[in-house]
Write a protein that binds this DNA or RNA. Structure first.
Length: 530
RNA sequence: GGCCCCAUCGUCUAGCGGUCUAGGACUCCGGCCUUUCACGCCGGCAACACGGGUUCGAGUCCCGUUGGGGUCACCA
């Protein structure tokens, strides 16, 4: 049975690179009819564990990466938190001590440091001399009396090599002599990650360890531990890491300032912040940026789009298939087609996937996705008036691909606010309504629209066209002024759709109001159609 | 610095010895469409890091160089 795992630390954030690793684990397991396990690596900072874990689990749920075992899905008394598995680790340490694969060591940090420095001076590779290794109980006691701390170290082989058959990289060879006698139990008695992860992988019966490349160089010591303990070695697959936009450095949430120099990254971040502001979401840049999954969820990305992008960041099926549903991903994914070189995160391409997915998304579901944004922005009541659903559907229909993510609906807030509350963008307002001429024209158009019986988009179109003809002008000479008058903006949906959507009363009121306010404008630019 | 990994357009990639004057996608740049914007359509720019081998033939195999990256904790 294939069993894979993803082992996040409860840091409060779900990193985009981490999710890709999780995705590959999940896909591999699902594709083999195997199981995917979520284990929490919290041997370190445990203070606010539950608080820091919730957003991570929530991110997995949003993405639809379900786990067969893990928090909330415990199987026969297994515990999925490393912090609570200490007893097993201690047993393992004792076993290693007993079999001679590990030893008690009493060197002080200063002494260790000195050895390292000396080795460096002599140009040797540093390897601990084992000078403070205790070989008997008597010796232990002597060191203890001196007040030395006691750690347990691995007793690594001094010759021979290890060949790791990596499912992505092929055979990777290491020389044992280069490996350090790593500490597996601290002076305070707690165990370290390398020991813990091996013990856990055994007890959860993990068959395939699929993880980031940065773990490749600690694999030898983990294999040493597994062998010494008599465990079956899992198969390994080391993924290249996800790199920064436009660079080959590992993507890290700590280097935001640097990423903000990337135009597209900064633009995405800016749009996200704009949406967050509209919905009154508190934003801490550390916790709200395009490196974190929560960012995308917050502004209305589709999880399928994010998954689709991540899938192709380091893996491909062939020379042409771009769109993958979950089912197709599971069906097609294989480790041997994972690329070996790191792949840079490209926010623009991620957006392109979002656009494609959202374009094809069911209109009614789009309504359901967009509605909460309007509600949080205070534009629509909760629960909504029964007219809102159809209205929103009509707006989305008219908007077409202008709404790329659910939060974009907030760019069309002018359909939801009171006529008296409409705000005008200054520049286009002055440009389009600055001249008395333009105002007179708009006034006459208003009269024409007022005569209409029906006010659907087609009716408005016919009326405006008729008006333009009778005035002997071009469409552009009046339509821009009309747009600014009724929406406050220079750009927006199709003009006639906009009129139909607003309805006669609103349109007439808004034109009158704009005309009034434009009176106080300083006479200046005479607007001509573009 | 030691060890390990990696190397095709700006980016993600296809390519597993001849079908490669290197294909697709994103970006970018023109143009068309058009009441603005978005979409759409048409077209364009753009890459096998370098040097040796092996071979009738190398982007594809081998070696080296260069370059990039990861890792070297009583962090995970």
């Amino acid at each position: 049975m294939v069993r894979t795992r993803f082992a996040p630390s409860p840091t409060g954030f779900l990193h985009i690179g981490g999710v890709r690793t999780a995705l590959y684990n999940w896909l591999f397991a699902r594709g083999c009819g195997g199981q995917f396990i979520l284990r929490i690596d919290d041997t370190d900072q445990t203070r606010h564990r539950d608080e820091a874990l919730a957003p991570i689990l929530q991110g997995f749920q949003w993405l639809g990466l379900d786990w067969d075992e893990g928090p909330g899905k415990e199987v026969e008394g297994q515990c999925y938190f490393q912090s609570q598995r200490e007893e097993r680790y201690q047993q393992a340490v004792e076993q290693l001590l007993e079999s001679g694969h590990a030893y008690r060591d009493f060197a002080t940090p200063e002494e260790l440091q000195k050895e390292r420095e000396q080795a460096e001076q002599e140009g040797r590779a540093t390897r601990y001399s084992r000078r403070w290794m205790a070989t008997s109980e008597e010796q232990c006691n002597r060191y203890r009396e001196e007040g030395r701390g006691e750690v347990v170290r691995l007793k690594m082989p001094s010759d021979g090599e290890l060949v790791i058959p990596d499912l992505i990289r092929g055979d990777v060879t290491f020389a044992w002599a280069r490996e350090q006698d790593h500490v597996i139990r601290r002076a305070d008695g707690t165990c370290l990650y390398h020991l813990a992860t091996v013990v856990d992988d055994e007890s959860f019966e993990i068959s395939h360890v699929i993880r980031a490349e940065e773990h490749l160089s600690n694999t030898p010591r983990q294999i040493f531990i597994a062998d010494a303990l008599g465990y079956k070695r899992p198969q390994f697959a080391h993924l290249p890491y996800v790199a920064e936009p436009g660079s080959k450095h590992k993507l890290s949430k700590r280097k935001l300032q640097k990423y903000m120099k990337d135009r597209e990254f900064a633009r995405l971040q800016g749009e996200g912040e704009w949406i967050a502001r509209q919905i009154h979401k508190q934003i801490d840049p550390e916790a709200f940026n395009p490196v974190l999954v929560d960012f995308y969820q917050s502004i209305g990305f589709l999880p399928d789009a994010l998954l689709n992008y991540l899938l192709l960041l380091g893996w491909s099926l062939d020379d042409s298939t771009e769109i993958f549903t979950r089912e197709k991903m599971i069906e097609c994914f294989s480790l041997d087609r994972v690329n070996k070189a790191p792949a840079s995160f490209d926010p623009k391409k991620l957006e392109a996937f979002q656009e494609k997915w959202f374009h094809a998304f069911d209109p009614k579901k789009k309504v359901a996705l967009c509605l909460p944004f309007l509600q949080r922005a205070g534009l629509v009541a909760e629960p909504p008036d029964c007219s809102v659903g159809p209205q929103l559907l009509a707006i989305l229909d008219a908007a077409g691909d202008r709404v790329k993510i659910a939060g974009d609906i907030l760019h069309f807030a002018d359909f939801f606010i009171a006529d008296e509350a409409l705000e005008y963008e200054q520049k286009p307002f002055a440009k389009r309504l600055g001249s008395p001429n333009a105002r007179a024209l708009l006034g006459r158009l208003r009269d024409r629209l007022a005569e209409l019986d029906a006010f659907a988009a087609e009716d408005c179109e016919a009326a405006v066209k008729g008006f333009v003809e009778s005035e002997g002008i071009k469409m552009g000479e009046v339509i821009h002024a009309l747009r600014v008058a009724v929406t406050g903006k220079a750009v927006g949906l199709g003009m006639f759709d906009t009129l139909g959507l607003l309805g006669r009363d609103s349109v007439l009121r808004r034109i009158s109001r704009a005309l009034e306010q434009a009176e106080s404008l300083p006479a200046g630019d005479v607007a001509k159609g573009d």
